[in-house]
Amino acid sequence: MASYIEFLKKTNGLNFNGLVIYGVDRDLLDRKANEDVHGFIETNAIWYENDWQKRYIFFGDSDTAWYCYDQEDRAYVEIDKPSGTFIQSFDSFDSMLSQALETIL
C-alpha cells in the first residue's frame, strides 16, 4: 500500500490507453483537479455492489482486467473483468503497475 501512496504523491491517478489507476476522490482534494479522476473510494464502492468482489481492494482497471489486492490471499492480483477469473499475482503494487503499463503499451 505504501507504493500506491507514493504513486499518488507523484500523480493523482492515471488514465492512459484504456488503463485507469484510481486516484484520490475529488471531494477529498484540497484543490480542484484539472482532469477527471476516477476516485479510489468511490470506484471501490461501485465494485463492492457484488459480494464476491469485497475480498479485493481495487487499484485500477483496463478494458479486460482489474488490478487489485486480494485481502484473503494477501497478494496483488490481476483478475479478468467481469468474470473475476484469476489471471496472475504480483509481489508488490509496483510490479502489478509495471505489468499493467507493459500490457497497454
Rank of each mutant, 00 (worst) to 15 (best):
77 V>N: 14
59 F>T: 02
75 A>K: 13
75 A>E: 14
45 A>I: 02
69 Y>T: 00
61 D>A: 07
43 T>E: 03
88 Q>K: 10
75 A>Y: 03
34 N>L: 06
51 D>V: 09
46 I>V: 14
63 D>F: 12
55 R>C: 08
35 E>S: 07
43 T>I: 10
28 L>E: 06
58 F>W: 02
62 S>D: 10
79 I>Q: 02
65 A>C: 14
86 F>I: 10
64 T>Y: 12
64 T>V: 11
60 G>E: 03
31 R>G: 15
82 P>A: 10
39 G>M: 03
81 K>R: 14
74 R>N: 05
31 R>V: 10
44 N>Q: 05
39 G>L: 04
31 R>L: 08
85 T>K: 13
66 W>A: 11
57 I>T: 11
28 L>G: 03
43 T>C: 06
55 R>N: 09
37 V>F: 03
46 I>H: 14
57 I>K: 08
86 F>N: 13
77 V>Q: 09
72 E>Y: 11
32 K>F: 07
37 V>S: 01
40 F>I: 14
75 A>F: 00
72 E>M: 07
37 V>D: 09
77 V>I: 09
87 I>S: 06
55 R>I: 08
28 L>T: 07
58 F>M: 01
44 N>S: 08
43 T>R: 01
74 R>M: 05
54 K>Y: 01
51 D>P: 13
29 L>V: 03
74 R>H: 07
39 G>F: 05
88 Q>S: 06
77 V>L: 07
30 D>R: 11
65 A>H: 09
46 I>M: 11
49 E>V: 01
86 F>R: 09
88 Q>W: 08
68 C>F: 12
56 Y>H: 01
76 Y>I: 03
59 F>P: 11
37 V>G: 04
76 Y>D: 07
43 T>N: 00
59 F>I: 00
43 T>L: 04
86 F>T: 13
79 I>D: 05
42 E>P: 12
31 R>N: 15
42 E>H: 07
51 D>S: 10
37 V>C: 06
31 R>I: 05
64 T>E: 07
81 K>F: 12
88 Q>T: 14
43 T>V: 11
52 W>R: 15
31 R>Y: 01
68 C>P: 09
82 P>N: 07
62 S>P: 09
29 L>P: 04
53 Q>N: 11
47 W>K: 01
60 G>V: 00
79 I>P: 06
68 C>S: 04
53 Q>E: 15
84 G>L: 10
85 T>I: 15
39 G>C: 10
45 A>T: 01
48 Y>I: 06
65 A>K: 06
40 F>D: 10
82 P>C: 13
72 E>R: 10
41 I>K: 09
87 I>T: 01
75 A>L: 02
72 E>G: 01
81 K>W: 11
75 A>M: 13
36 D>Y: 05
